[in-house]
Design a protein around this nucleic acid. Sequence first.
DNA 1: CATCTGATATACTTATTATATATCAGATGT
DNA 2: ACATCTGATATATAATAAGTATATCAGATG
Lengths: 126, 126
Amino acid sequence: MLIKIDIYAEKPIYEQLYDGIIIGIASGQLKAGESLPSARNLAADLGISFHTVNKSYDILRSRGYIIMNRRKTAMIAVKTPQDIPEILSEKLALCVAEAICNGIDESTLTKACSDNYRKIKGGFIE
Amino acid sequence: MLIKIDIYAEKPIYEQLYDGIIIGIASGQLKAGESLPSARNLAADLGISFHTVNKSYDILRSRGYIIMNRRKTAMIAVKTPQDIPEILSEKLALCVAEAICNGIDESTLTKACSDNYRKIKGGFIE
DNA sequence: CATCTGATATACTTATTATATATCAGATGT
DNA sequence: ACATCTGATATATAATAAGTATATCAGATG
């Protein structure tokens, strides 16, 4: 799996890494049970600090996306289907609100949602 | 319209204000053509700096949500329906990816999207 | 003409982000 | 047993972002 880091982007590096791993899991490039590279190795590969990777891993762990038990390498979690988490729910509501501000109608929005869903889950991402 | 600012929140104040105004427009509390309070007055009301309000207004203007011509008070823009802007499209894709990571299925996600749409557009927001 | 508006400049403080070293204890492979 | 890996953690430092405070400016308003 390849993750692109742009140190000049406005988005913080740890967020870019977080988003990249989320996309990786959602697209099936990172499968449940699979191990992630160690924080140190990934940091070296990406040319960033170990602590920055650690921060991303820690947030992913706190939200249940990866498991980091007993000092083994981080592993993709197996999540049982559940309700949409609060944090995600707020993000989604803001997306919907902004779409409404742009005059997007309900069916266009839900279609964009479905299209994204299939595209990502199908692994068709750049 | 009421906007809540939490200076202790992790989200920057200018983002909280941006989001609040987006929700205000989407929910119909702020109607197209309607004037926003002046940056100075709003800053005073919210107990924050004029420059912070200015920053939010500037981003809203740059994305076409408000109009600030000829030194009149900022006004809600009338947006003609168009494609989903790139920035919003990326936000939405990340929401969808994170939903997939949580094992949310497509119909649950699109339903959440629809529910949010109707709730926000209907003005049923906290 | 006084007063409002956003635009802009400067200066300053604080918080966040990112980095570099270093230590620690548990786990791993030999 | 032993060297080596892991994440967890601590400290320090630098760079950037966020937020505030004052001030000036020109256009618009009444």
